[in-house]
Simulated scan of single mutants.
Amino acid sequence: MTSPLLDIRRIYVEPAAAALPRGKEILARFPEAQLVEVDSHQRIPELHGDEANVHRWVRIKREALVLGVKKTLTARPNGRSADFIAPSTANGCAMACAYCYVPRHKGYSNPVTVFANIDKITGYVHRHVARQGTKPAPNECDPEAWVYDIGENSDCSLDARISDNVRDLVELFRWLPTAKASFATKHVNRDLLDWDPQGRTRIRFSLMPARDAKILDIRTSPIAERIAAIDDFVAAGYEVHVNFSPVVVRDGWLADWAELLDQLDAGIGAAAKAQLAAEVIFLTHNRDLHEVNLGWHPKAEELIWRPELQQPKRSQNGSWNVRYRTGAKGGYVAALTELIAARTPYCRIRYAF
């Protein structure tokens, strides 16, 4: 067992992944696990799309691992949090945040899938960065560097407990003067402090009031632990930002955010404050995920499924999302950004929506 979050007992493995050096390394980390050969990491009926799994939601995340090969390598333009979304080295998660969008696309529970062809992924990223040249002008992602999000569909801090994929990317970006890596995390993994990123990797610690996190951020590091880690990661050579995300509107929400901001202000030092920036992201929920959550964590839905405050919107993939109502949401955003400016005036807001 490499972490309290993980007790890997079954590995679903593509033969091509098992034959690669990284695949062999991962299998060696879990020698007691049962191996189940699969044709595709994307089509495992007993994990994906089986409604019965909702009753084993957390157990599957803790005990199952999928080992595959990433077949399509692309860097998608983003333009808000990052300039590009890098090809993922993993997807899924052992944590179980009630609002997570990843299960909407892949099916029930969605444990970690890790990709063994890391050499292909890092080679693609290196070539993509080289093609961009020097960034022509500052933008909200970064004033100088092209920013690549390396953890869109997983939590890199947790992935690093399974394989060296994330470390390989951090070490790659260390030597890329025109680009930097970025990922958001809810898991404090202090092994990353020894990686010497030399300012070329941005870690975004996700924060919300502890009252919300206790219900919504299942199996994650406590909010106080995330705040306490910020100074250490800055000292280790990371650029550290925060994600105020997701912001949940409820009775007393602004008072609890004021308390969180005061905790952040008291918990970090001058060096962290001098480089701190934030993304502010209000909750978006999903009708299908709402139905799933009712099967394993209905208490969360009392907080995040609020039809009287939310309006539906059809997503690009055809599913129905809900978000706070137009007009009212603008007031919520203004109230929180004004509070951030008052309590933590050094924290630059990169964007808020």
Rank of each mutant, 00 (worst) to 15 (best):
D39M: 05
I26G: 02
H48S: 10
A33P: 12
K24V: 10
H41D: 05
Q34K: 15
R29T: 05
D39K: 14
R56T: 13
A19V: 05
I11W: 05
A17F: 04
P15F: 02
R22I: 07
L47D: 00
A33L: 12
L47P: 00
N53I: 13
A19N: 00
P15N: 10
K24G: 00
L27G: 04
G23I: 00
H48D: 10
I11V: 13
I11E: 05
A28W: 08
V54A: 14
Q42V: 04
A33H: 09
H41F: 10
Q42M: 15
K24W: 01
H41W: 13
I44S: 04
A19R: 12
Y12A: 02
R10N: 03
V38M: 02
N53R: 14
R43D: 00
Q34T: 15
L35T: 13
R43M: 00
K24N: 02
A17T: 06
E14Y: 08
P21C: 09
A17Y: 09
A33T: 06
R10S: 07
S40L: 01
R22K: 11
R29W: 03
V58G: 10
V54D: 13
H48V: 04
R59N: 08
K24P: 00
V13P: 06
L20H: 08
L47C: 05
A18M: 11
S40I: 00
E14R: 03
V36W: 08
P21T: 06
F30P: 04
R29P: 03
